[in-house]
Simulated assay, not measured.
Amino acid sequence: MDIVIVDTGSANLTSIRVAIKKLGYHSIITSEPSIISKSKKIFLPGVGTASSVMNLLYKKNIIDVIQKSKQTILGICLGMQLFCDFSEECNGVKTIGIIKSSVLRLKNNNLPLPHIGWNQITFHKTHPLFKKIPNNSRFYFVHSYIVPINKYTLSKTNYGIDFSSVIQKNNFFGVQFHPEKSGKIGSQLLKNFLEI
């Protein structure tokens, strides 16, 4: 199976590739649109700012490839947020526009930002992405911006307020946490995604 990790210039690319390799799959890190468009599975990771990653995706002509993607694609952390159409980050950034939602700064109610560490995800119905993952399982988060609860929300997490921790629209999946840093439970989620 051809698995691509989109090279967004992020720091977590290698850790995602290692996590996928531990599951017995081979992946490549690339920003080449022709390779991305021919792959079977796509990972869109993101660390840093929405504007810096969007600029890189524009320069490499990857935005159009993602928007027209028919294969399953998993956005991780900032990668998930980029599926929305706007982010409040950096005085406002137009993002990829798969999901009609704005990404908002986390209203933390005096809790420290960024939200760093282990937190629970809560889901209300079974889904192939949650196979062998108990409800209220804990995953590792690092973020200051959120996707609000919307009709594409599969699970929510609370940090002062509820926000989307897993979303899906058609072939587009997103997780706000880092499965590659979430131990066995994160590995199970990656396995589930690769088997969808």
Rank of each mutant, 00 (worst) to 15 (best):
E89C: 01
L111W: 09
N91V: 00
L57F: 05
D162L: 03
G117V: 10
K107A: 09
T30W: 10
N158H: 10
K151C: 14
I185R: 09
S155N: 03
R105T: 02
K169N: 12
I161A: 00
I62R: 09
I185E: 14
T8R: 10
V65Y: 03
L56T: 11
Q67Y: 09
V103N: 01
K94L: 11
Y25I: 08
E88G: 06
K184Y: 11
I133V: 14
F177H: 06
N110T: 13
K132F: 14
V166R: 00
I35Y: 01
M54A: 00
H178R: 11
N171G: 08
D85L: 02
D64G: 13
I196F: 12
K181I: 02
L78D: 02
E89H: 00
N171V: 07
K70I: 10
T8Q: 10
K100S: 15
V103Y: 03
L56V: 04
K184T: 13
K40P: 00
T95C: 00
D7F: 01
S165K: 02
P112A: 12
G9K: 07
K59S: 14
I96D: 08
V53L: 08
S39M: 07
K22W: 02
T95N: 00
S10G: 13
P33D: 08
S102V: 00
P128T: 10
F173D: 04
R138M: 12
K40N: 15
Y145H: 06
G92A: 06
E89V: 04
D85S: 14
S37P: 00
G97Y: 12
M54T: 02
S182A: 07
A11E: 13
V175P: 05
L23K: 08
I28W: 05
I5Y: 09
M80T: 02
S51M: 06
Q67C: 10
S39V: 05
I98P: 09
H26N: 14
G186E: 12
I3E: 05
L104Y: 04
L189W: 08
M54E: 01
G97V: 10
Y159F: 09
F83P: 05
G160N: 06
I196N: 11
I146K: 02
I66H: 07
K184C: 06
N12P: 01
S101D: 03
T153H: 06
G75Q: 08
V93S: 11
C90K: 14
Q188L: 11
I42M: 13
K151F: 11
H127M: 12
Y145K: 01
L82C: 02
V6P: 03
F43C: 13
R138Q: 13
T95M: 03
I62Y: 08
I63W: 01
F43R: 14
D162W: 04
T72E: 15
K68C: 10
T122W: 04
F163T: 01
V4D: 03
S34N: 15
K181L: 14
I35C: 03
L189R: 09
